[in-house]
Each structure stands twice: as structure tokens, then as C-alpha cells.
Design a binder for these strands. Structure first.
Ligand SMILES: [Mn+2]
Ligand SMILES: [Mn+2]
Ligand SMILES: [Zn+2]
Ligand SMILES: [Zn+2]
Lengths: 157, 157
DNA sequence: GTTTCAGTTGCAAATCGTTTGCAATTGACT
DNA sequence: AGTCAATTGCAAACGATTTGCAACTGAAAC
């Protein structure tokens, strides 16, 4: 029995580990980047760029810089991009060596997000890939519903 | 044994059936709407609004009208909206009585789309919903990979 | 067939998330 | 401290989508 070999989702990463990873890609550790990483570190859920901006000490960093930073972090595999179906991309820190693949359960009323450990069955995915001659097949999967609190709210109306 | 009771994916619908459904929602059958429905009828895959516009006899209808029509058709349950992760929404006609829930396999190189019949296991989804106290849980799921033709192309480079 | 009017449309302007050009700034190395 | 490529802020540009508004048109009612 393996003891949690690789799936430690949402374990807060050390800031030094993060900056080391950036340096490893020969990138500068700038004020804005450190601030952004700090925000991501503190939030174990996907954040939009605007949410990151709002969480930042005001005037700490321009929105355009956040967009550029997220591209960089995505390219270096330090964050994973998620889509919840509204227009905006959301980003979450990814553990070293992890590819960040996982899924969420989102409340369609209040946007609460729950991290989900289940994944689409590999065998079925492989069968789908093979049946259509596709290679390197992966998937995006998100769940949507009404959270307990919003069920309450609805009942009262 | 039931003979294909409800899942007849992508069976081309009669235009009259479509206009009847719209009338059923007390909406006018206008030139633009008929033209849009005709395009959707002919395409068994999700289309962006811009693709619909391009497929339309030129000048047949304004892009804003297509956006408005897709909202209407979505609200009345005649089309289903899909997200492939690029900015744009895509729409597909939904059979009468069907909710249109299904998934796709998309080539990340050439954007070819394959319709998929598999779905996320209901039992697992229910377990996820129950474990988190969520109600009315559903999911969005799309597969991405490299299609046979693009595998060829890549090999040649 | 004509009248009537709410529903619909085209067009332009507005909005939203995101990208980009550019000149000024700044980490990291010497 | 000096150098220089990488980085940033700011404003303009962009692509998808929405919206205000005046003109227009199905379809129900005469
Ligand atoms: Mn997550
Ligand atoms: Mn489809
Ligand atoms: Zn998965
Ligand atoms: Zn499904």
C-alpha cells in the first residue's frame, strides 16, 4: 500500500520553492510575480485574473502584468488553467511534478467551488481515443449544481 | 427490450417540427430564424455564431440577430450550448424532448469534432453530489486529442 | 385583404475578458 | 556601481458578446 505517493492536492507550497521553480526557468523574481504567487499560495481554488488583482494589495501590480504572469506560469507548468463556462479563465497553483489535472464542483447560484478527487475513468477514455484513432487524449470536466447553503436560500423564497 | 426509445443523436429534424416548436413558445418565424435553423439542421456538430453567419447566404442576417436567436433557442431548449475552451460558445440543435446532454472529442490541431456517446458515470456523480450536499448536479465534459489526420501531418514535419 | 402592434431586426456603440506596442524600469550578473 | 535583457505600467487594440434604438414585419384581429 503506497502512502499518498503523489496526490497531495492543494497542499500549500513554500514560497521559496515557488521562486526556485521560476528561477529554474531563468525568470526574474519580481515584485508583482512574488505578490501573485503569494495570492495563489493562499487560495486553494481557481482564481480569475481579476480576483487575483482584487486580492493584491492595491496598486501592487497592473492587470496586464497578471495576464502576462499567468501565461508564464502556465507555460512553466506552475499553474493550471480552468474554464467554468463564464467567459473568464481561472488559475490554480500546481504542485511540483504534478500536472494539476483535476476537477471541480461549482455552485451555479453562489459560485462556491469544491475540489473533486474523482476523474473520468481511464479505460473509457482510452476506448474512446482508440475507437476514433485519436492520440494524446485528455479531458476537461467540471460539475455544476446547487450548494447546501443556496438550497436553503431557495427554500425560503 | 425498448427499440431506441430516446437516444437518436444527430438525427436531422424536420424544418416544420422546428418552426412548430418555436411557435409553441409564441415566437415569430422570421426569415433570419428560419435561415439559422436551416443551417443548424444541416450541421450535426457544434457551431459558433460566426460559423453560422459564414454558413448563411451572405447578408441574410446580422451577427447580433444570430446571438439573439441563439439565446432564444437556448432558452426554449431547442439548442444546447457547448464550450471548447477557446473564447467562443458553440451551439447544436437538440431533439424534441431531449436535453441535449452529450460530449465531444476535439482535435487540438485542426478542431475536428467527433460526437461521443459515453457520459460520466451517474453513480459516481451522485456520490460526489451527496458527499458535498449539492443538488441538481450535472457536468460539462469534453475530450481533447490529436486526430488521425493531424498525427500524419505531424509525422511528416 | 387591410389594420394593428408586440416582437424582431440591423446598425452602431458599449461591454468584457484578453492581448499587445512601447517607452520607462529593474532584477541578476559582472 | 554598470550593463542589458527581461519585465512592467499604461493605453490602445482585439475578439466575442451584449445592448439601445429607430425602422420593420409576422401573425392575429378586423
Ligand atoms: Mn482545484
Ligand atoms: Mn454534439
Ligand atoms: Zn479528469
Ligand atoms: Zn455527460
Amino acid at each position: 500500500m503506497k502512502a499518498c505517493a503523489h496526490k497531495h492536492p492543494h497542499q500549500r507550497q513554500e514560497m521559496s520553492a515557488l521562486t526556485d521553480r521560476l528561477r529554474g526557468h531563468s525568470r526574474k523574481i519580481t515584485g508583482p510575480r512574488a505578490a501573485i504567487l503569494e495570492i495563489l499560495r493562499q487560495h486553494p481554488h481557481p482564481l480569475t485574473n481579476k480576483e487575483i488583482l482584487a486580492a493584491l494589495p492595491k496598486g501592487q501590480c497592473d492587470l496586464a502584468t497578471i495576464y502576462r504572469s499567468m501565461h508564464l506560469l502556465e507555460k512553466t507548468g506552475m499553474v493550471k488553467r480552468f474554464h467554468f463556462g463564464d467567459g473568464a479563465s481561472r488559475f490554480e497553483l500546481v504542485g511540483e511534478g504534478d500536472d494539476g489535472h483535476h476537477h471541480h464542483l461549482v455552485c451555479t447560484k453562489c459560485a462556491e467551488v469544491v475540489e473533486i478527487d474523482d476523474c473520468f475513468p481511464t479505460e473509457v477514455e482510452q476506448r474512446i481515443a482508440a475507437a476514433n484513432g485519436f492520440k494524446a487524449v485528455t479531458h476537461r470536466l467540471e460539475f455544476f449544481g446547487i450548494c447546501p447553503e443556496c438550497q436553503q436560500t431557495l427554500r425560503l423564497k
